[in-house]
Design a binder for these strands. Structure first.
Lengths: 201, 201, 201, 201
DNA sequence: TATTAATCGAGACGGTACGTCGAGTCTTTAC
DNA sequence: GTAAAGACTCGACGTACCGTCTCGATTAATA
């Protein structure tokens, strides 16, 4: 049984060229932004032929996808979120790190570019959820699960929604440039989410 | 005090053509999606010359912007969110309405198209926040303010963050197509946000 | 019986605007050449509305036509070619004057522009022959006629062709920029035409 | 020594497309005339992309130029004018052929279009003289030279001017539509030029 | 002298074509 | 067989003018 066959035989593929293309995509996204990010420019910057890109990736978004995947694989972040026992502190630390990442154009701009592609391309969106967002989300859920088991979260909380309530505001503020994206903001989000909105008795 | 003067004298402007262009933009966005939404197509559909669009709008995003503005002006929704005294019920009602809007391609597709433009164009983003998102946001804040004064929200809650925690998850789920966007989901979000994440004593 | 009525009642016509338009046409032709000579530019330069041009002239060529007509009316050259009795000397004098006119961009460039219009527009060509070229040609023919009667030209010469043989080479050299357009060239043309090509016994 | 390099590497150039474009240019010029001859129309008729035209030719005039060059290369007319020993007869034959060519819209209309371009574009004019008009002119001069050596032309005649005196009137009459362009007219021009204007003793 | 109708400047309008960019496909040559 | 190179068709971009069409605001002949 063969795999869905989404690319030609990878055996002869040039790894150097592959890396050059992903690097060029990242660099160009950071430099000129999504609007001016063209396949032609990526190929030229990478010293590759256009066809080489089309041979291995179905779309510009897919290139960005792999480029960002390579970026995070390279960093090879911890497979798990920190668990010091103090949920609030741990979440603040992680969210502050996220805020810092968004401040780095080398990450932020390709991410924005990929976001646009994902917003427009349902197939890419599915792949994005599965391969990029998914694992991170699962990791976050595991930490929340642990917290719930430790009695730090309401036992009946819908953890998916909890997750969106914590990371969503940060992502939105970045995506729509809705306000300053600072560590203080990250802290405030965590506190507000944990305490809930109703007055405590 | 004069405005920044971003367009020629509006006196002679043809209202019929303006409407035709906005309608065409809305129709086309709903029909073919952002990817295939071109100024040329809008002009052709509207029976207008391209130059007429360029005369009055600086970008495709600006057209979409006005088109959606006109759509909501037309609806001329309530200037205030409902206030029955029951915050939870009111929020659920509003959020369910939002979910329903997202289900209508005539609203959802132009909105997605505008979102993409806003994500990419800082100037448009500023205008978006000021003229489209801003008033709605202010209205939401007023309702939360009233709730806080009525003792239904923690007195020290940062209402901006509260707002993002409630509407953010819905918008994100729509934007990234992260899961089914249902009335139940809207209810769950409101409940989770209000109750907070920590276990109640 | 009414005239062909090719323009509205001229009574109220603004003479100042008419002059401004013709001047602007001449100036612009001399400055930027035919390629960049647009009705919009003429109107702007003249401080006139486009419609004022369209009201009185059917085409850009017609404007140029009138502009050049006004130019030569202004000069109001002699109604007849000089006749000193010496045909060769007279022709040389006239042809040298023509050469000099072609060297003046204020005449040459509008003329070139008009030529292009005439080449392309049969109706304009007819009017050109009748009202601009015609009178000049008739004048030339009268001088040649006089010369023939004075026994200085072969009695059976076709004067129309003679005329083309004398002025044609000068106009062609100007039109196609085929070589230096000098007084010497004018002299040589006259001499060659008069002497004929066959060896004299 | 390298050429001025005015176009990309011609190695990969599609000959079929090149022919299709030149043919389309010729056809359209003959059909709709210069005024309506657009690059877009040529591309559409040729089934080519506009960019392919812009890649290889700098202007519409250059396309027409090559098209007419191909036309005459195709005909591959005699490398020399006929020389029966009878100059008058030979010139009449050639001039009659010219008159006939002008009567064929498939030649005449593209020629008129090219003329307009040449009139307006000095660079094109230079190329025109060098590559289209030049060789023909040299051929004509050789025939006149031979005639002069055979004692059929005045030994001191300026052959360039002679040439203009013979072919100029025909071209002018065509260009400006100044009168019927017939074989008789061609004959009369040759006779008048040869006999000269002065009365023969 | 006041009326009134045509002309005026201005410029928006629906169009056509421009010349450029990039998309995605195809072909040729080198490795 | 992959890769670099780059020509190809196609579609859209944003711009320049076209010729037509209103708009008040002159303005000049008529009442």
């Amino acid at each position: 049984m063969t795999s869905p066959r989404r690319a030609p035989a990878a055996a002869r593929r040039s790894e150097a060229t592959r890396r050059a293309i992903l690097d060029a995509a990242l660099d160009l996204a950071a430099e000129v932004g999504y609007a001016r990010l063209s396949i032609e420019a990526i190929a030229a910057r990478a010293g590759a032929g256009k066809q080489t890109i089309y041979r291995w990736w179905p779309s510009k978004g897919a290139v960005l996808f792999d480029a960002l995947l390579a970026l995070s694989d390279g960093a090879d972040g911890p497979a798990e979120l920190p668990d010091t026992g103090d949920l609030e502190a741990d979440l603040k630390a992680v969210l502050r790190a996220t805020v810092e990442e968004f401040a780095d154009p080398r990450v932020s701009e390709p991410m924005r570019a990929l976001s646009v592609e994902v917003l427009l391309d349902e197939r890419l969106a599915a792949e994005y959820r599965e391969r990029l967002d998914g694992p991170v989300r699962a990791m976050k859920l595991r930490r929340l699960q642990a917290a719930r088991e430790a009695g730090q979260l309401a036992p009946d909380a819908d953890l998916d929604i909890v997750l969106d309530m914590i990371w969503g505001p940060v992502r939105d503020r970045w995506l729509y440039r809705e306000g300053p994206l600072t560590a203080d903001f990250a802290d405030a989000v965590v506190e507000t989410a944990l305490d809930g909105l109703r007055p405590r008795p």
